[in-house]
Design a protein around this nucleic acid. Structure first.
Lengths: 270, 270
DNA sequence: TATTCGTATTGACATGGATCAAGTTCAGGG
DNA sequence: CCCTGAACTTGATCCATGTCAATACGAATA
């Protein structure tokens, strides 16, 4: 029985009457109504504001809310909650997952600072998955109706949203393609390196079990592959710490799996 | 060597200067500039116009173009083409696929009448996959810039586009989840039944090879599973003809894989 | 510093589905 | 109506990865 199920929330069905999709979960919820100064946020070039004018950003700021920080293991939303908002990760990290008929967890994605989540819930109007923090985290809330209204006025915002959703689509499509365990893991490590901007010194926030679940592998396979990569001189690994050594070698393995993000130029490896 | 590579187009890189993303491919291209009467199209409730006012649809019609019919095996676009338009299938069917480093084809999706394709190319600005017809087909062209501009004015259109992209996202995410061969195939058959509205009498336009590729299975596995499903009384199959017999049984197998489309109520099975 | 418990590693074995290799059927063209 | 090649089916075998079972490690706690 997964430890994140310790609190006693029932429900896996769409529920109306939740405001902002989070009144249901106590303590975690209270939204500081303080406006978030996107312009002063260090992630400004990573999340939605990318490509917007200063004026556009000001309008965006007026609808963005900041949640009180979430502790590790807390839920941002749960499968079946009615859809109300898109979320942007400021600090920490989250995973999204769903439970299958047998109660087994399937990790659908990891969400790192500067990334948005929740787009897959627009269509069915309720969340198809749960989102849980992998570490203490803070998150911006973008109420969807307001966001959509604003996108109606601000062309750059609409364009950005479409671009982001399209990108998410590419990532999922890619993940659905068949690749060997080796390719998946190598590609995963490269994508984490790129997304975190940690260069070659990674700290994997997520446990092996979650990496395995995300890559549709067994935990043991991930462990064994990391050991093998190390043996082959591709990297050094010790628990959550990974040092990528042979980037070209890794790219050769995982290149076809990795989604290269052409919109971000961070100072990590090229 | 795949047979669809018989014509001599090179290029797998983004190419600027193609207008509407199809001037590059001869004969296939000429766009009839005739306006397409969406309102009189039998698919009106399936593709974009869904939920739009008559007035909105009229505006949409003004940007929609109809391509000259495509023969079976023709390409609508190719991997690497610069992104210019979203496409809506009127008749026939298409598959999207990409080629991996070894030149092997991976089917990413099937696109049936009333469905749109091309959303995954918005972000990278060039097509990440090729689209080929599985049968003679006709297609509507929605030039993306014009579509985006229109969505800026027509709130219902923006909402529809977001909803559709979100749905595509759900489908891809689901496909990426790990399921047994059995679950995938059963779910696939149910989804085809639903999407075509053929009820229980399906005609599979796509060859086994493509089904297998899409579901990340070997052709032989698909063949064997169909034989087994038949033996178990779940269905009857003869080449492209499939008659679903035990829907509940199939749902039990494939239910967790199938994406249920809540926006379409066609007159097939419930 | 010892204790503990979740997380990670490592080994032995099982198996679903891939691959290889014949057949078989069918649709389309002469 | 037969021929031909592609699409499909069926059988035999193999292998990548999953599963089961210990064991080891390490961070948190006392």
């Amino acid at each position: 029985m997964p430890s994140h199920l310790t609190d006693n929330r029932p429900a896996l069905r769409p529920e109306m009457g939740e405001s902002l999709g989070m009144q249901g979960s106590r303590k975690v919820v209270n939204i500081t109504r303080l406006r978030q100064a996107c312009r002063s946020c260090s992630l400004v070039e990573l999340c939605l504001p990318m490509g917007l004018t200063s004026d556009d950003i000001q309008q965006l700021e007026s609808i963005v809310q900041v949640k009180t920080p979430l502790e590790k293991g807390a839920h941002l939303f749960r499968e079946g909650d009615s859809f109300q908002a898109i979320f942007a990760v400021r600090t920490g990290a989250l995973k999204t997952y769903s439970l299958d008929a047998d109660g087994r967890e399937h990790v659908l994605g990891f969400h790192l600072p500067g990334e948005l989540l929740g787009f897959d819930a627009i269509y069915p109007r309720y969340n198809r998955c749960s989102a849980m923090t992998l570490a203490d985290a803070s998150v911006c809330v973008l109420p969807f109706n307001q966001l959509a209204d604003l996108a109606q006025k601000v062309a750059g915002l609409q364009a950005t949203i479409l671009r982001l959703m399209s990108k998410n689509l590419s990532i999922s499509v890619n993940l659905a393609t068949d690749h060997t365990a080796e390719e998946r893991l190598a590609g995963f490590l490269l994508s984490i390196a790129q997304r975190t901007g940690e260069g070659t010194e990674l700290r994997l926030v997520m446990p092996r079990r979650d990496i395995a679940s995300y890559l549709r592998l067994a935990t043991e396979t991930v462990s064994r592959l990391l050991a093998r990569f190390q043996q082959e001189g591709l990297l050094e690994v010790h628990r959550k710490r990974v040092r990528l050594i042979d980037l070209d070698g890794l790219r050769e393995l995982g290149g076809s799996f990795e989604i290269v993000d052409r919109t971000r130029q961070r100072t990590g490896y090229q």
